[in-house]
Design a protein around this nucleic acid. Structure first.
Lengths: 254, 254
DNA sequence: TAGTGGTCTAGACCACCCT
DNA sequence: GGGTGGTCTAGACCACTAG
């Protein structure tokens, strides 16, 4: 026996549709990812070599490489020169992404609700002006929301946005998240700078969140940028730590 | 005038060394990144098209694309079909990476110090056994360290590691970080799962960190995996929120 | 030594964006 | 319509790993 293990991809009936507008490399990476997801490709198994896989699918090697590389970038596969490409053992579940609290909660089946406390326009103070790169004193949107799950307060979300990007309808704000509103308005989110910390609740914060004054709160301050580099949102959020924590997976930069 | 702006890369004297073992695409991406870093390529400026750049450098287009793509992945460039490749306006400084607290502090010039409180071997409890994927009750390393900056406590780091991976010398632990020790032992870190939260300090924690009982603490629990999928470390850390917060930049998954 | 991934080339056609 | 990036091909040589 020259090989103790058989290439597990041969039993997978991978195939690509050349008439589809979906890129070939993407079709392949999706099929491989699905196979890993539902266990057809088990952790640790060695994929067959790229050349042979390319030949079997009628693709060129660079195309197959592009498909595999995208899964390596997601942390699902590991390449070893001289060895081969292997399915990673550990479960990679949630890579850290720029998602909204609302979407996270909804995806977790938590049925989030939002109560808009403030929705107005104010002159930007120094901190806000600096974060949004607007002149100090110029007008910006100010939105303050209470996020609830199961009818109980979970977080208080205080946000500032430049004027003119978005029309901030209170009804919309109560039925969805801010990021979804921005994406719907044609804003392409690009990056965000975040700081996560903790501190004691003030009396006003405790009142709003149903905690005691001085109770520990989890805090997050964030500035979000679109793909032109404009700051499109600055927010300071406070979370009840018994009801919320930040959970995510990191990949090592190679 | 057909073009209001001139391709800013022409004045950059980009060049590649074909005798170098460094990949050509990497040489190019480094030069472009350096040019962005020190302002030779200003935010918003449009790079010349890939074909022309390839011709000028004597490279093929895929090689140039690979260089550019790596900077797009880092968030430094944005590509627009039909338009061109642009330098992002906002400053991308610290992408979130799996770095050690020790290295972070050292890079920030904080001169970190470590005091090893516990360095022993214990049977794994249920939580630790689950995190490290070892049988409950099997022996694991247990290390507890106090991290100080400027002579003041900043965090308490409680870690568990499987036996046999590393020799945990107290002297080494006090002079560097755990991740650097692991990398030095030939372990290839691959990913980590983290949860960041907050809670009130217990009396013992308050004593160690120089806080009051019930004071807010920032907490982090993390399991780190190597590239074979083995869990190589599980840790629960507590931070003094006045002295530490998690700061990082996120890129939107495309 | 044989096999793997890592890199590179010189073309090609298409989809999209702006004018 | 002209220019851009997005995708794809069919080869090639090299570096590293294992047996």
């Amino acid at each position: 026996m020259p090989k103790p293990d058989v290439d597990p991809t041969v039993t997978l009936d991978l195939s690509v549709d050349r008439s589809s507008p979906v890129p070939l490399y993407f079709q392949l990476s999706q099929q491989l990812e699905a196979a890993i997801e539902h266990g057809a490709l088990t952790p640790g198994s060695l994929l067959g070599n790229e050349i042979e896989l390319a030949g079997r699918l009628g693709l060129s090697r660079p195309t197959v490489r592009q498909a595999i590389q995208s899964l390596v970038d997601k942390g699902l596969l590991v390449r070893r020169r001289g060895v081969g490409t292997q399915v990673v053992h550990s479960q990679v579940k949630r890579p850290l992404e720029l998602s909204s609290l609302y979407d996270d909660l909804e995806a977790a089946g938590q049925r989030p609700a939002t109560k808009v406390l403030v929705n107005t326009v104010v002159p930007a103070g120094a901190e806000i002006a600096a974060a949004l790169s607007v002149p100090e004193g110029s007008e910006v949107h100010h939105v303050e929301r209470l996020r609830l799950t199961h009818g109980e307060p979970m977080a208080c979300l205080c946000n500032y946005l430049p004027l003119g990007l978005l029309d901030l309808d209170t009804g919309h704000l109560e039925s969805t998240g801010l990021y979804r509103l921005m994406r719907g308005a044609g804003i392409t989110l690009h990056s965000a700078r975040q700081a996560i910390g903790a501190r004691a609740a003030t009396a006003a914060e405790a009142e709003r969140l149903g905690e005691e004054t001085g109770a520990p709160l989890l805090t997050m301050a964030r500035t979000t940028y679109d793909d032109t580099g404009r700051a499109v949102e600055y927010g300071t959020h406070t979370y009840r730590p018994a009801r919320y924590s930040f959970e995510f997976q990191l990949l090592v930069r190679s």
